[in-house]
Design a protein around this nucleic acid. Structure first.
Lengths: 232, 232
DNA sequence: AGCAAATCGAACCGAGTGGTTCGAAATATT
DNA sequence: AATATTTCGAACCACTCGGTTCGATTTGCT
């Protein structure tokens, strides 16, 4: 709307002081304040004044960096999504022992998804999803959905190696993920659980989940190999 | 606070006109308006004036029936929970064919949980769970948790009959439920899916989920009986 | 030091907030 | 018809909302 940079839209080569609304440090500062407010109050209850206070930045400045409340919220969620799902799937990149890999991935996933911070963030997104459906969809698409795709291709690799036999790989991937969570997500997001599950509990759940999954989809070859390496 | 019934706190035997704030019809009317507003705006964004308008009841009257906004919201959620989980578990009461019963129950559960109306209601609860954790906890406890307990006792019966072998029945029940949903809940609640899944899709998922579950936990006896009845 | 620009801070806008109050109107019992 | 009481409807309270504006201040470069 307001062209703060005058007629300099051709090229901006200023190296020193960042242009208005372009300083990444200040931007981060604003988002950090927004994070605290949005995540513990939700979209509606959060006020721009709260964020102003929490970020230690004047209201006018915030509006230089972000068009309005909704855009600021979206920027925050986008960032949250990025940090939440970062490094979550790389354990699937190098195919080694099937069972161990599944357990390792499932444990990491389960710990992340049910951690207090992440649950709060997800609640915020869910709460806003009714008013801004695209936001929730984008969050899912670039977060959980991407992970799901990684699981699918991992399972496909296992199938190619003759270790698994899955009629519907896409469905199988969902089943695997859900088995690793086994109710934890719902319990956490409804705040039936007020604390994140312990490492021990998660390990128990994931181990059992992988067990069920492999009993259902593991091939003879897989079990034979496992027996062989166990007696070695 | 305000004693509208004067000094009649000993006994109120008036049979005709209901006492102030006691007419169940008017109460239902208020809650119906509250439902529409709360569920499509969320707790924070909903205003008492919206509800006044939607319910066709004056603001003063609402405050006769409910102490404040939060109490009205809780009353609504309590009712929603009741209608959502009504009649959902009775299919587990009469033990007949194991696989068929599991499929039937899983299908019903999956359809309910992912229906547009119920998803909206759940989103509202989740969104509010950050500010009113007890509300979310109560919702889960008297809804999903009760269903979980029913599943547990059903599985125990199946174990007693020698059809299943489950090391941790509680965990097994969670696994079963999650297998029946297989990602649908998360997709719906994040509004990644904007429409409820089709009957066909749910049946496919549930059938496969039950399959996985039985492959993991079904006993020799169970499979023998199933083969026998199949060739009959 | 001088200068240009980004940030601050506070005021302002109209609208709406939950909650409360109270006389007028509607209602059902007697 | 008279009576008792619930409900209505509108006004009011002090406050906050998101958003905008603008002069004063600070900042960092030349």
């Amino acid at each position: 709307m307001v062209d703060t940079t005058a007629d300099s839209d051709l090229l901006d080569l200023r190296k020193g002081r960042p242009a208005a609304g372009q300083d990444p440090v200040k931007r981060a500062q604003i988002i950090e304040g927004a994070r605290r407010v949005f995540i513990d109050k939700g979209f509606e209850a959060a006020s721009m004044n709260d964020i102003t206070r929490e970020a230690g930045v004047s209201k006018g400045t915030i509006y230089v960096y972000f068009e309005n409340k909704e855009e600021l919220f979206e920027a925050l969620i986008e960032e949250e999504r990025g940090t939440i799902f970062k490094n979550m799937y790389e354990v699937l990149d190098h195919f080694e022992d099937l069972r161990k890999t599944l357990v390792k991935f499932g444990t990491g996933l389960s710990i992340k998804i049910t951690s207090a911070k992440v649950i709060q963030a997800q609640r915020t997104v869910v709460g806003a999803a009714d008013r801004i459906p695209e936001l929730g969809a984008r969050f899912y698409e670039r977060g959980p959905k991407r992970g799901h795709d990684k699981v699918v291709s991992f399972l496909n690799e296992a199938i190619a190696r003759g270790l698994l036999e899955i009629p519907d790989v896409d469905l199988g991937a969902y089943q695997f993920t859900e088995l690793c969570l086994a109710g934890l997500f719902r319990q956490c997001i409804f705040s039936y659980r007020t604390k994140a599950p312990s490492q021990a509990e998660i390990e128990k759940i994931v181990t059992s989940g992988v067990d069920v999954f492999l009993k259902a989809y593991g091939t003879e070859k897989f079990f034979a190999e496992e027996r062989a390496s166990a007696s070695a």
